[in-house]
């Protein structure tokens, strides 16, 4: 009995060894020379394979840089430092990558600010819960809080706290995976800076919004009238700030009666509690 086990093991092992030998010989004699710069460029890239550059992954992008002369500043997670490192390998100018971009969640409706219309006990996924009357909270538009963005983030930069997704700006690289995943499309990728943002996605009429969430945009239009450069427009009961026109005076932040307009770094959905919180 023991000898039959030994024979079986010996046969399989010897087939494996023969196969390995064939492969080793083949790789020795049939090796194809690859441009060594592909590997060097790939080492400069973050290796997250997020696809924000438009290529299938970091390896694919490195190949495109070396062989097809692709632009060096496409890597959003890596930013300027990656572009410079890749440029050093290639001996070319990197080109500007622009200001760093970060994800922000356009919702501040934490559990204490929103009511609930039912208790959800299903699959722990935003996509699933969104199919059931657009989620258990009274607001049809806001963050569902089941963390599809957390699961898709490769940098551990976004997590759900108190029913709303929060972005850690130090870890966020602006690759946009969470924005693509969010079923309500309330995560935006914005340039880091002093421009304020409307932290609400609710298109309901003001009275309805007010009833459902204490921090939602009620569409009163005060910010539109306050803005000195007319950067704010009202789109279907929701204010929208044009980042191109905004001069960063923050008049709208002070004017908003419900604190729905805020700086990204002061909003509930981003980092610390809102600065105007009383």
């Amino acid at each position: 009995m023991f000898s039959s086990i030994m024979i079986a093991a010996a046969v399989v092992v010897s087939i494996g060894i023969v196969g390995a030998l064939i492969l080793v010989i083949a790789s020795k004699f049939l090796a194809v020379e690859e441009d060594p710069r592909i590997g060097q460029v790939q080492e400069c890239l973050p290796g997250a394979n997020c696809g924000a550059c438009g290529y299938a992954g970091c390896a694919d992008y490195a190949k495109a840089i070396v062989q097809d002369d692709a632009p060096l500043n496409k890597c959003i997670p890596g930013g300027q430092s990656t572009a410079d490192a890749a440029a050093a390998v290639m001996g070319k100018e990197a080109g500007a990558t622009g200001p760093a971009r970060k994800a922000v969640v356009a919702c501040q409706g934490s559990a204490d600010r929103r009511g609930f219309k039912y208790a959800y006990e299903g699959i722990h996924s935003c996509a699933a819960v969104n199919m059931l009357y657009s989620g258990p909270t009274d607001c049809r538009y806001g963050c569902l809080g089941y963390g599809d963005c957390t699961r898709v983030c490769k940098f551990d930069a976004i997590r759900v706290e108190d029913g709303v997704a929060k972005v850690d700006p130090d870890k966020c690289t602006g690759c946009g995976m969470c924005a693509d995943t969010c079923p309500d499309k309330i995560i935006h990728i914005v340039p880091e800076g002093e421009a304020p943002m409307v932290f609400c996605a609710n298109h309901d009429r003001g009275a309805v919004t007010r009833k459902n969430c204490s921090i939602g945009c009620i569409g009163c239009g005060k910010c539109v009238r306050t803005c000195p450069v007319n950067a704010i427009t009202m789109d279907n009961n929701l204010a929208y700030i044009d980042m191109e026109k905004c001069i960063g005076c923050h008049a709208c932040v002070a004017a908003c009666p419900v604190n729905a307009i805020n700086l990204p770094r002061h909003s509930v959905g981003y980092q610390a509690p809102a600065k105007k919180e009383d």
Binding site: V12, L23, L30
Partner: peptide, 24 residues
């Protein structure tokens, strides 16, 4: 043992085929 042996052989063959195609 055929399942295990066959898996082994197919894996080796595909690898070999890939190397050969890459070269020629």
């Amino acid at each position: 043992m055929q399942t295990i042996v066959f898996i082994l052989i197919i894996a080796v063959l595909v690898q070999l085929l890939e190397t050969v195609l890459k070269k020629f």
